[in-house]
């Protein structure tokens, strides 16, 4: 456990250093980006000083860490340096809601597809299921999102276009974000199911005369679940990243929107804090995955 904690901390500190390095390298600073092509003169030096841009990078990083620890962290955007944590706190639930829903959507789509394909390996059913699932990987989210909006919000008028006011607003973004994972999971399910179906206990169960459905779901599927749990954990990071594009398309007020805006504005502190939170989510989910894995499979538990 200590080992896991140490590597988690390393990952987070590493991510913070990496993002700070990039912020240092990327040209442009918050004051200039904010002013843009402004027709009137403003006091840039004072604005820069106000947000600590006159300090060397290591001092800025130190101030960041200190302010984060005390909860006093403010944006790098003068003159109103709003607190960063409340904004992050407001965005986090939205992103979690979106990613978890996307994961649910993908499971609901993928498991039946994958199991079906495995059960009828080599038949047109298999081909069709895999064809559908692979198409999911192939559609970029920024294309799928608007297409879904045009179809379901505009032509059919079933769902709203964008925003986050009710569960109805969640449907399209969750589908957009979930399809790629669904496609991947369906293939995973198929592969693991095929392996499970070859195991001895399945043969035994078949020999005992159990119905194919029982064999498929009770015996094979349960054992195929384990690798899926691991994959889900690993894919969560990808899902978080994908949420950035999806949130932009659907004006979903999550961390991705926060992060893109912060990068555009060169709001260093918000970028750093959001990246840290992304990393934190990833690390937490992976740790949870490991724990679940150990819990599900006693062999792993004994080994570690």
């Amino acid at each position: 456990m200590t080992r896991r904690l140490v590597s988690a901390v390393i990952a987070m500190v590493g991510a913070l250093l990496l993002v700070s390095l990039f912020l240092h390298l990327v040209p442009g600073d918050p004051v200039d980006v904010m002013l843009g092509e402004q027709a009137t003169q403003v006091d840039r030096a004072a604005l820069r000083q106000a947000v600590g841009l006159d300090l060397p990078w290591y001092a800025q990083l130190w101030t960041f860490a200190r302010d984060l620890a005390t909860g006093e962290l403010r944006t790098s955007l003068p003159p109103f340096q709003r607190k960063v944590l409340p904004a992050l706190g407001a965005a986090l639930p939205y992103t979690l809601l979106l990613t978890v829903s996307a994961m649910a959507v993908s499971l609901v789509l993928a498991l039946p597809l994958g199991v079906m394909a495995a059960a009828r390996r080599g038949t047109p059913v298999d081909a069709a299921a895999m064809g559908v699932s692979v198409a999911g990987v192939a559609l970029p989210r920024f294309w799928l999102g608007p297409v879904l909006i045009i179809l379901f919000a505009l032509k059919l008028d079933w769902l709203p276009v964008s925003g986050a006011e009710s569960w109805r607003h969640l449907v399209l973004p969750a589908f957009t974000l979930g399809t790629a994972l669904a496609a991947f999971l369906a293939r995973m399910t198929r592969a693991t199911m095929l392996e499970a179906l070859r195991e001895d206990y399945v043969t035994v169960a078949r020999a005992k005369g159990l119905s194919p459905g029982v064999v498929l779901w009770k015996h094979a599927f349960r054992n195929a679940l384990l690798p899926l749990v691991t994959v889900l954990g690993l894919e969560f990071g990808a899902l978080l990243g994908g949420a950035i594009v999806t949130e932009k398309v659907f004006a979903w007020p999550g961390m991705g929107t926060l992060l893109l805006t912060a990068i555009e504005k060169r709001d260093y502190n918000t970028v750093r804090a959001t990246v840290l939170l992304f990393t934190f989510c990833y690390v937490v989910v992976n740790t949870l995955t490991d724990l679940t894995y150990a819990w599900v499979d006693p062999r792993v538990r004994r080994r570690s």
Binding site: S7, I10, A11, M12, G14, A15, L18, V19, F22, G237, A238, L240, G241, G242, I244, V245, L259, V275, F278, T279, Y282, V283
Partner: peptide, 11 residues
């Protein structure tokens, strides 16, 4: 670990 935890699109 650091690179995996960092959102790839962001990098």
């Amino acid at each position: 670990d650091v690179l995996l935890a960092f959102p790839g699109i962001l990098l």
